[in-house]
Amino acid sequence: MTLAPPAFDPADAAAAARRFTDAAEPDVAYATVDSPVGLLVVAATPRGLVRLAYEDGGVDAIVESLAARLSPRILEAPARLDAVRRELDEYFAGRRRAFDLDIDWALYSDFGRRVLQATARIPFGATATYGQVAARAGNAKASRAAGRALGANAIPIVVPCHRVIGTSGRLVGYTGGVERKVALLRLEGVEV
């Protein structure tokens, strides 16, 4: 009689882990979503959508950053992001002009939050300048600070910082690269 570690089927372990994920209530849930502008990583807390990232740097790096900034109790739980995925799919299919999602603004300072909330009110297919967004956030002179806040937007697409452009109509920069800004504006029928 010998005592070797018991045989087990890794598929059983994987199934058990899936059941755990379905029942667990993590501080942060994330999932990946395919889109015409590349693979996206979306993350939500119980308060709402907290992060949407272009996957360029790798999913692991994004998840590690969320674990460090929000909570290490983070799980890949796609079912908790069904509404986000559905609204993004509809947006990219041209069937949705406004997002109706709860947002968790936990990652921002006061002014940054006001800038992004003002940005979230720019309608589909419209644009605004950095100065206009700064004014709507309560400080018309703070267009540079508004630019920084938009550069730190953790929820692009849903908080449509792609609709904010320079005074002369220049596109300036974009968190996911200017070509994505162009793609999103064209999707919304803006001539660029």
């Binding site: 372990a13 882990a17 799980l75």
Partner: peptide, 12 residues
Amino acid sequence: IPFQRFLDEQRD
């Protein structure tokens, strides 16, 4: 490490 990675590493 994120809990998801902990789960992946310790699951089996």
